[in-house]
Write a protein that binds this DNA or RNA. Sequence first.
DNA 1: ATTATTAATTGTCTTTTTGACAATTAATAA
DNA 2: TTATTAATTGTCAAAAAGACAATTAATAAT
Lengths: 232, 232
Amino acid sequence: MIEYSRQPHYLVAVDCIVFGFDGEHLKILLVKRGLEPEINKWSLMGGFVGPSESPDDAANRVLKKMTGLEGVYLEQMQIYGEPHRDPIERTLSVGYFALIDIHKYEAQLNDDYEAEWFLINDRPKLIFDHDKMVADARKKLRYKAALHPILFEMLPKKFTIPQLHILFEEVNDTKIDTRNFSRKITSTGLLIKLAEKDRTGSKKGAFYFKLDKKKYAANAQAFLSLVPNLKV
Amino acid sequence: MIEYSRQPHYLVAVDCIVFGFDGEHLKILLVKRGLEPEINKWSLMGGFVGPSESPDDAANRVLKKMTGLEGVYLEQMQIYGEPHRDPIERTLSVGYFALIDIHKYEAQLNDDYEAEWFLINDRPKLIFDHDKMVADARKKLRYKAALHPILFEMLPKKFTIPQLHILFEEVNDTKIDTRNFSRKITSTGLLIKLAEKDRTGSKKGAFYFKLDKKKYAANAQAFLSLVPNLKV
DNA sequence: ATTATTAATTGTCTTTTTGACAATTAATAA
DNA sequence: TTATTAATTGTCAAAAAGACAATTAATAAT
């Protein structure tokens, strides 16, 4: 008969892959680790799950602490639980990916952490199994974004179709036809065209759009097939 | 500065939602819990994660122990980590769902566990948050099965289109047009028609099919849109 | 003032896929 | 030989997808 008391206990942590988009490229937010082992090495932002919080709570707390942001789009990915993934002591980590508007993020000065954005394709080697986590997160982001309208989370409230287009290409690492993309994205009914134009990118300027919040909430779980020739 | 030693440690468990199909209805395999608290109450099959195994290892071990089956289709769902989900001591549980061919399962006599199949829609109340887990698993099964050819895992090696049809209807809790379903499922190229017929269900008999293993392996990650008017 | 330039926006056509719908076929039972 | 039952196959219209290029709105250059 199994008894609770005989069972081993482990540390449980969360690690967050924070994605952002600077208008050109997909980026992730990394921090310099503030504790041994591997102190001062680049790492995902993470922390241990406290006694009175769920892993989801912990992930939100960590994000708040390290980015200053609340109410961030956060999604549980999977658990990383190989016995020796942390060399000091067995620690299971719940991986999350987060999507944030890079412009909202104001670096929080903090003695323990220095956070910095890196191009997803040009980032330093990370500690432990964090490189695997990033790879998994990217895959899952691609999967999810192909079917659900979540990439808006990485754009400002007002955005243009060309911005959205580049973001989709960046996430899926593929070229998408402008005309077909435009048709698809507008046919979702999720976008509301504004009178204002963004004139920073071109002479003609591109119309701003915003999300139809109501329809977005209603369609958050809808499948939308937003990427052509989908193969994941 | 955070130190490992100060951090709290928790029990980590796995719980498996085991789905099966008897030819008519979707079923789940439940066990009578063999330890306090809630001893002898119906529960998902689960167990603690041992010191030298990953959660995936633990889930496979539990399944092997309680069903006698190895190499079962197993998929990590999410972590259940509310602080007080287990009244005795904080335990985080990794939820898995498994798909097995109900006919392969031979009840393993075991002092600690009595396993039994229940109709998914007519099952006893479960302990802790296990009812929530079942609901989540069902949702995820539906989601996954709508896009990936995984339901074959619940059928024998030789199966008929009508069997598959009923299974899809059962999982999605909806009627699917026979003709359209047949067209779609065969157009995947995943099925190989056999010469033999299953004569148990009708006078005419239905041709057996088997999976094209190679194509199945290649398409396991492909999107297939197998369910009409998909809304998840 | 006119023209050149640049990027945003819009449009057409064909092919493929979907969804709605019913007739035919292969066996056994009457 | 006919009735019965479930499996199998077929058609058509609508919608979606994919390939492809012309037009437009602005500014810059002449």
